[in-house]
Amino acid sequence: MTGTEINSCTEALRLLAAHLDGELGGHAHSEMERHLRTCRSCFSRAEFEARLKASIAGLAQEPVPPELSQRVHTLLREFTVAGGD
């Protein structure tokens, strides 16, 4: 992405997802930050997408049922014992 210049909202929106995913390289990242500082429309869009992304990331963890914890614990103990350690 080196050399990427972001001179339009179209270009900024094309790169927005990768930007929010932390997948843009140094120069492109800086260019994106610069554009978002100066463009209210793209900034609003970025804020919205970032909040939605954060909401989805909130689904990452689920409370582990005791049966599953016990099952995994037993599994690991069996493996360790099987190795004679």
Binding site: A60, Q61, L68, T80
Partner: peptide, 20 residues
């Protein structure tokens, strides 16, 4: 073995979240 067990315990809510 101990390190593996610790990592699995730490990631279990994530693994279960991803799995379901």
């Amino acid at each position: 073995q101990s390190w593996f067990a610790d990592q699995v315990a730490k990631l279990l809510p994530d693994l279960y979240g991803g799995a379901i």
